[in-house]
């Protein structure tokens, strides 16, 4: 197992490590929930220790307040490492990586889909959340349905939550199903097309402290980096692409060592 996979596993466990929830039910509401994890990980999950920055952002937007804490948090992480958290500690990204490893028929996602995540960020998580005063992205988020919606409803003892199941829950399940199937067929389909957290971090890819550098004299344009890349980014052409998640697989795979990561 590579270092990346080990860190992804450990990070997934740490972010979702509230064991008492398995026996007692309910979700964790203690001190750690006040802190954001730097990546998309639903705070409604019974096991989740930290809160989701996207949920926090929408919550404050819905209240009509400026979310200084979350914006500052996004800015800090983004300026330091860009989208690196997507590649190394995102549980849902890890899940999609594993799905793509299945030997099956694969397809390529057309380039313009990469820009759709800004529509999701501004439209769903911004404007709609402000107008309706409800976190609408969370209501559709497939990560939420996978780690919070399904286990909570299945483990429901009182029957209160089951009574709430309606058209909204059906919709969440169908979105989750579609996204899982499409991530088997395409590399990290959700990250590339919908994820608003990735959309925010992707803006900082250009300016972040950690960045990738291509040695044009050494590069032989073999495209091994693009084939290996979990986001299918042509890294040899655009080292600060909005979809680069800094997983550094390309650095390892490059046959001529033309790709270097450096801190400026």
């Amino acid at each position: 197992m590579s270092l990346k996979r080990i860190i992804q596993t450990i990070a997934t466990v740490i972010q979702n490590a509230y064991i008492p929830a398995i026996f007692a039910g309910g979700i964790y509401q203690g001190f750690l929930k006040r802190a954001c994890t730097p990546i998309l990980n639903c705070w409604g999950c019974p096991l989740a220790l930290f809160s989701c920055p996207m949920g926090a952002l929408q919550h404050f937007i819905g209240l009509g307040l400026i979310p200084f804490y979350t914006v500052g948090f996004f800015g800090t992480v983004g300026m330091l490492v860009g989208r690196m958290t997507c590649g190394w500690i995102c549980p849902f990204g890890f899940f999609q990586d594993l799905l793509y490893k299945i030997r099956s028929f694969k397809a390529e996602l057309p380039k313009p889909f990469s820009y759709f995540k800004y529509v999701v960020l501004i439209g769903v998580a911004g404007v709609i959340a402000y107008l309706t005063a409800e976190p609408w992205f969370c209501k559709l988020c497939p990560d939420g349905s996978l780690i919070a919606g399904i286990p909570l409803v299945l483990a429901d003892r009182t029957g209160d939550l089951r009574a709430l199941v309606g058209w909204h829950y059906y919709m969440k399940i169908s979105i989750l199903l579609a996204i899982i199937v499409l991530s088997v067929a395409m590399k990290r389909f959700f990250c590339r097309t919908f994820c608003p957290v990735g959309a925010i971090y992707s803006i900082f890819n250009r300016f972040s402290l950690l960045k990738l550098q291509i040695d044009d004299k050494r590069c032989i344009r073999c495209e091994s980096c693009q084939t290996k890349c979990p986001m299918h980014v042509p890294i040899y052409r655009s080292p600060s692409n909005i979809d680069c998640i800094r997983c550094l697989d390309c650095v390892k795979v490059c046959p001529t060592n033309a790709i270097k990561h450096k801190v400026r």
Binding site: W167, Y170, M171, I173, S174, L177, A178
Partner: peptide, 8 residues
């Protein structure tokens, strides 16, 4: 939303 589920 059941029809969305059928589509999925």
């Amino acid at each position: 939303a059941f029809w969305g589920l059928i589509a999925a």
